[in-house]
Amino acid sequence: MENKIQIENVSFVYSPGTTYRTDALDDVSIGFEKGKITGLIGHTGSGKSTLVQMLNGLLKPASGRVLIDGEDIWEKPKEISKVRFRVGLVMQYPEYQLFEETVRKDIAFGPKNMGMSDEQIAKSTETVAKIVGLDESVLDKSPFDLSGGQKRRAAIAGVMAMEPEVLVLDEPAAGLDPEGRNSIFAAIADYQKQKNATVIIVSHSMEDMARWCDNVVVMSHSKVYMAGTTDEIFERASELVSVGLDIPEITRLMMLLKKRGLDVDLGAYTVDAAIASVKKLFDENKDR
């Protein structure tokens, strides 16, 4: 399996040499698989957001290397903006970065900075608007007149419109209702499929991770605590609990059942898998 982005021994310190000094990343090495959706979870202050800003060169590692397709992004520091077009980053609460008169213009801001032609921009805007589910009529409104969920989707569309090979999103669904969350994640999955992009999602919600991600990276205290496929990670649910992370409710239920003596499958982290596991158990014991 090929890694699109590889991080090698990266460390980062905020405010070095002062009393405010904080280690954000401590010798982190991790790879993000090409064409997959990888979830990044961890506590507040575990270094997730810092790591994410390393990926497109917003922050420069104090030591270590960040490789995209095997190339060090800091080899030519002057061309770092090119990296930013390849790795699209959606920051936390991206709706606060909207500024243009219309949604359409705002979406076009990134592509314009890239030097895309007007035709390309129009085409790209149309595509991403469809992906995130913004109607044609919304595109000509002022971004400040939209609802919260629509603003979020417009902001994400603004990054998607640059058609990055890697899409990184920091808490894309924070503060949205369940329906809003699902539509955002569905849009991200849709983009991934259409462009065969590599996607990295930072999230607190284990449920969302379990549902949408192929791989999961768990961070704790500025280090990578564990990494693997979603199946592998949720099989080790009890370890997640030990670092103080939440696990999907259904996994917790399965753990409780196991404790009570039922031999259920602990790797079942979605409701469907759990139902299947319980049903299987039920069928096996039917004769007794």
Partner: peptide, 16 residues
Amino acid sequence: DETDKIMSAQKARGAG
């Protein structure tokens, strides 16, 4: 703080 964040966000969209 907010200025910092917004600048980063716009830089991520290719603003110089």
